[in-house]
Write a protein that binds this DNA or RNA. Structure first.
Lengths: 249, 249
DNA sequence: ATCTATTTGTACGTATGTATT
DNA sequence: AAATACATACGTACAAATAGA
């Protein structure tokens, strides 16, 4: 076995703590030993202990609180943080809009079909109310941007309802986030007046109808068409996704 | 704006450094200021600086080296680390095998179609050579496990060739990793002798034929059938994916 | 409202390890 | 082989936050 990086103490400490979390099946909210206890039981200095809790914190596994009864607590990573960490991975990777849509086209119709007949009326109503903001053509470029973001939010919320597949929901929300993030920084559309907002709104309305009616196949088809159309108007030249890091939850 | 967590110094420092990476468009290999310089320019102590570099390191954004000319260097996050971080997110989430296969079924046929006609002969040959290890039925349970892992490796390698979509490749490799990890810890199949290895081997061979012949539609169909069949023999009771954390690259 | 105890957060000084020149 | 430049680790002292009396 050659060339294993010499893992430093803070990481070894972090790994043993991860081991505790797995072995003792710790759950979110459970407290880890205090700094002083860790120093004593692991025989390391305060600085080392602190560096390792920073590592675990950065990886989203624990949170720390000060004061009596404080300390480091096991934590369920927030989706926002997971998205942020994944965006770090993609930062140097040159993802194109095509790449994103390839994934959306494969996954979102599947999700739509899954949701059919499984969303309760009040949720449907809530989503329908959100459609108003992009029902009418935008008056200027900024308005168009806002409409794009709003309509992406629709997809995110759809994914959040998720027919019970957290990973599917995560991926869909991640891709929507990336596109929404891009919208803020770039001009994503060819110049000229399209009616992107209203067109998307129409599809979203139909989608909700199909989902409400429990017609999975129709929902699938609609989502597919909708995404194809949305992709068609995007400017594939402005494609590279390298951008700022996303904020962390 | 209420309730924003009081971000501590190490995180503020880490964020300003991230800012530098984005603004100055630093690339992998570029050096960050030394600890001493950071202490001076940001007016914080050594401990704080070290904690923040641990954070950036844990997030996969930098690596540090000791010695003269050492320091913290911008780094392109490895896929292994990204997979590990994402697995932290899913750790408490109760993903089922069904969930994983839903995603594989949506994405991998897409990938197979993409690859058709775009993989050079030597790569195809290399992949064909790998098929031998699961061409014959396994003699015992351990052998069957190994075959399962080997056949998952085929999928990972296929994804690595990726028709140029890094995110697609990542997701596919992640799902394969999760399944492969599960295989190590659990009995994934119903008792009884199946011929999983040889069946998978046959499909993989056909897939390579289709990809070599440039027949995208056939590749897509084959992959779809193959995954359906593979999913069918899995034990959906042993479904929950909560398991150990994956090792980091 | 104040004090007190507990626990993390920050700073600083020193010594050691490690790789480059 | 030695000097240099950097990270790594330790120990201590004190500051800040929070819960409870």
């Amino acid at each position: 076995m050659a060339g294993t990086t010499p893992r430093r103490r803070p990481y070894r400490v972090a790994d043993t703590i991860k081991g505790w979390i797995v072995d003792r099946q710790l759950s979110p909210g459970d407290r880890l030993p205090s700094e002083a206890e860790l120093m004593a039981s692991l025989g390391v200095s305060k600085g080392t202990v602190r560096e390792s809790t920073r590592v675990l914190e950065a990886q989203g596994l624990v949170e720390t609180r000060t004061g009596p009864g404080g300390g480091a607590f096991v934590r369920e990573m927030s989706e926002a943080r997971a998205i942020s960490l994944l965006s770090h991975y993609l930062y140097f990777k040159d993802i194109s809009i095509r790449d994103i849509y390839q994934i959306r086209l494969a996954l979102e119709p599947e999700l739509a079909a899954n949701l059919a007949g499984k969303v309760n009326a009040s949720e449907i109503q809530r989503l329908r109310n959100g459609l108003a903001s992009y029902a009418e053509p935008a008056v200027d470029l900024d308005g168009e941007r806002q409409q794009h973001i709003d309509s992406l939010t629709f997809h995110e919320e759809l994914a959040a309802l998720s027919g019970g597949n957290p990973l599917l929901a995560f991926i869909i929300r991640f891709t929507a986030q990336v596109l929404s993030d891009l919208t803020v920084y770039r001009r994503l559309y060819e110049p000229g007046d399209h009616h992107i907002g209203p067109a998307g709104c129409q599809y979203h309305a139909w989608l909700l109808d199909a989902i409400e009616a429990g017609d999975g196949e129709r929902a699938r088809t609609l989502m597919h068409e909708h995404l194809l159309e949305a992709q068609a108007v995007m400017n594939d030249n402005e494609a590279q996704v390298r951008r700022g890091f996303l904020a962390e939850g």
